[in-house]
């Protein structure tokens, strides 16, 4: 006793097309509001340090995920860091090849307890090395919108 009838011909296979017809508008929230305001308006990069357990977060947050304390203040950091890991991407989101490969890296930020930040690395794939020193490249103030691309990427320090 089969659960389903056997399909003998592919033409009997049919499907129905559709999409989820919505888009999203996200507020940044309390923590990222502070981070991106400072980035946009002052070109500053903010971390935050838990007053109780001392854990440092980058970008800044309003609560400590380890001890659940509120974190009110922020902590300026240089934005420099060390490459923790990276990948060289050859494909776009839709699977088509990129004209030039793009390097995406995880950067361990100076002045934090190893907080890692994802961004693009402006370097040739052959010159990239884990452990290399990196610094952020910011857009000029008038081009900054308060988003992640206010930092264009990171390059060799």
């Amino acid at each position: 006793m089969g659960l389903t009838e056997r399909i003998e011909r592919n033409v009997d296979l049919s499907y129905f097309e559709g999409r989820i017809p919505v888009n999203y508008l996200y507020t940044y929230g309390l923590g990222f509001e502070k981070f991106f305001r400072a980035l946009k308006e002052e070109g500053k990069l903010l971390a935050s340090k838990c007053p109780r357990c001392g854990t440092t977060y980058f970008p800044c947050r309003v609560f400590c995920e380890q001890c659940f304390c509120e974190i009110e203040g922020t902590l300026g950091v240089s934005g420099e860091g060390t490459l923790y890991s990276y990948s060289v991407c050859h494909l776009n989101m839709d699977g088509s090849p990129k004209k030039t490969p793009e390097v995406v890296g995880l950067i361990e930020m100076d002045g934090t307890d190893g907080a890692k930040f994802v961004h693009l690395i402006d370097a040739q794939p052959e010159e990239i090395q884990i452990g290399m020193r990196l610094k952020p490249v910011l857009k000029p103030k008038k081009e900054r919108n308060g988003d992640i691309f206010d930092i264009k990427g990171f390059k060799k320090a």
Partner: peptide, 18 residues
């Protein structure tokens, strides 16, 4: 419409509960 992200709202309620 809250300014807080979902995780910030969760923390506010969870912290108060503790």
């Amino acid at each position: 419409r809250a300014q807080e992200t979902g995780k910030e709202l969760a923390w506010q309620a969870a912290k108060m509960a503790l």
